[in-house]
Design a protein around this nucleic acid. Structure first.
Length: 280
DNA sequence: AGAAGGACCTGCACGC
DNA sequence: TGCGTGCAGGTCCTTC
């Protein structure tokens, strides 16, 4: 389940493999229609463009594309290719002769004799084009970036919010990049019960949560993210953060701090794991 | 308007 | 063995 650390790992891995290469051709399956773009528009727009860099914005992967020399139209308008991995999306860089995995929904043939493949069994992922007008901004995620938001802004995000802090953390329009795993792990680290109403948390506790979110995300990025079964990075290698999970998917197992069993409830429609003794 | 809940989608674990 | 059932959850959409 790709959240910020997984998406960052994938974006960096893809960037190192495809940066500088040109898009020769594009094949799209009968996947759902791309977001805010038609399938045919995407297939026509990408060939001939060169990949300048690949980076993460929220949970989105952004490909900065530039026109080849001599293509005037692209000097005025920059194109970005946006990939959201959804739940089970993967981006693989493979030689063309390697068989395409099941559920391959996009294949981009590159000048370096490699294919960039988008594979997504559960079809929750999304592809889109983003046009950047001259002087305009690149693609922006829906909410604030957890690793760079100031403490004051972080605290202000949750003011007057009448929903659980767990649901608030999952709301991408507030903070983007945090999903179910890192919400649970951050709340455990901050010793906050997931059911607490966000708007009633003290400033001190929100500051503690801000620190916890940043620490958890940074640690996970260093370890290459988590991998439960679906997520694989651009190398085809799994991340190691799941070995660090303190509460996520540890229902009934002893809390690593106090020894009491980890509980599981459903909150905001999601499995939520916490220690009732340590998190108040 | 903000919050809550269902739909989307497939693979996998589980029980009988 | 084999089949049905329930669960996993990011985001969009509808409902309250």
């Amino acid at each position: 389940m790709p959240e910020l650390p997984e998406v960052e790992t994938v974006a960096n891995g893809v960037n190192s493999r495809v940066r500088g290469q040109s898009i020769a051709s594009v094949w799209l399956s009968r996947y759902k229609e791309p977001f805010k773009t038609s399938r045919s528009e995407m297939a026509e727009a990408l060939p001939g463009l060169r990949i300048k860099r690949v980076y993460r914005e929220g949970k989105h992967i952004v490909f900065d594309l530039v026109g080849e020399k001599g293509r005037k139209a692209c000097a005025e308008e920059q194109t970005q290719w946006i990939v959201h991995l959804g739940m089970t999306g993967r981006l693989l860089v493979s030689p063309p002769e390697v068989p395409r995995p099941d559920h391959t929904h996009a294949v981009i043939s590159l000048s370096g004799d490699r294919e960039l493949r988008f594979v997504d069994a559960r079809r929750f992922g999304r592809l889109a084009l983003h046009r950047v007008l001259p002087g305009g901004e690149g693609f922006r995620g829906p909410g604030r970036e957890p690793l760079s938001i100031s403490s004051e802004d972080f605290v202000a995000l949750f003011r007057n919010r009448n929903l659980s802090i767990k649901a608030a953390l999952l709301n991408q329009k507030l903070l983007h990049g945090v999903g179910n795993i890192y919400a649970d792990e951050s709340l455990f680290r901050a010793r906050i019960r997931p059911t607490r109403i966000a708007g009633r948390l003290s400033r001190a506790r929100l500051l503690r949560l801000h620190t916890a979110v940043k620490e958890i995300l940074r640690m996970a990025i260093q370890l290459g993210g988590s991998s439960v079964s679906d997520y694989v990075d651009a190398d085809g290698a799994a991340g190691f953060f799941q070995l660090e999970h303190k509460v996520y998917m540890r229902t009934g197992e002893p809390c690593l701090v106090c020894g009491k069993p980890i509980q599981r409830i459903v909150l905001a429609g999601r499995g939520t794991h916490f220690c009732a003794h340590c998190q108040r």
